[in-house]
Amino acid sequence: MHDVTCALTPFHADVLHSFSWSANVVGKKRWILYPPGKEELMRDQLGNLPFDVTIEPYTLPTHPSYPHRVEVTQSSREIIFVPSGWHHQVHNLETTLSVNHNWFNGCNAEKCWNYLKYNLQLVEKEISEFKDSMTDWESHCQVLLRAHMGFHLKILLKS
């Protein structure tokens, strides 16, 4: 039998730093959330975020991210709203069925747009050595951006 208590969604922020909600139909989840910017306190020497914030050193009261940590237990028939840009990790505490949705609107559209532009800059920097030798370099950057983010600027403009 599968142990559902080990099922987790690793530490992340939702796509494009969108808003999201999650409705538990049945089951129970433990949410661990950090406000925007506080995830930076958790990066390692290579700039990577942790996979699991429930292990040391992230659980120690002396860790710099500790005072910013918000924990919520979500039960059946409860809905949680995750604000734009909040990093979070979710653990299923029992067999769980949830419905989730991500979106952006006038309140966070600029944040989503800026996040996508920032990631485009990262793509452009990563392949900058090929700029002069590639035809239609900008289109290639958009393809790589879409592969990385699930969106590119033209898709977002059509939304």
Rank of each mutant, 00 (worst) to 15 (best):
S139H: 09
T135W: 07
L156N: 03
W31T: 04
V25R: 03
H148A: 15
M149N: 00
Q89S: 08
P83E: 11
F104E: 01
S76L: 01
F151N: 06
H140A: 11
W137F: 15
R146S: 11
V99I: 15
V53D: 00
K117W: 09
A13P: 05
S84P: 02
E39R: 01
H148D: 13
H12Y: 02
L153W: 04
N114A: 08
S159C: 14
K131L: 08
I32H: 01
F11S: 07
Q45M: 02
R30I: 04
D132E: 15
E124V: 03
H148I: 05
Y118G: 11
E94V: 02
G150V: 08
P10N: 13
F81H: 15
P67C: 07
S159M: 15
V70T: 08
L120Q: 15
L120W: 03
L16A: 10
E40M: 09
M134H: 07
V72Q: 01
P10S: 14
K111I: 14
E40W: 02
T62D: 08
H17R: 11
D136V: 04
K125D: 10
S98A: 15
I79S: 07
W31H: 05
Y118A: 14
R69Q: 02
T96R: 01
V4C: 13
L41H: 01
N105A: 13
V26P: 06
A7S: 12
T54Q: 10
H17V: 00
K117I: 10
N119V: 09
K154A: 13
F151L: 07
L93Q: 11
Y34G: 01
L122F: 05
N119R: 14
P36E: 07
E110N: 14
C6H: 13
E138H: 12
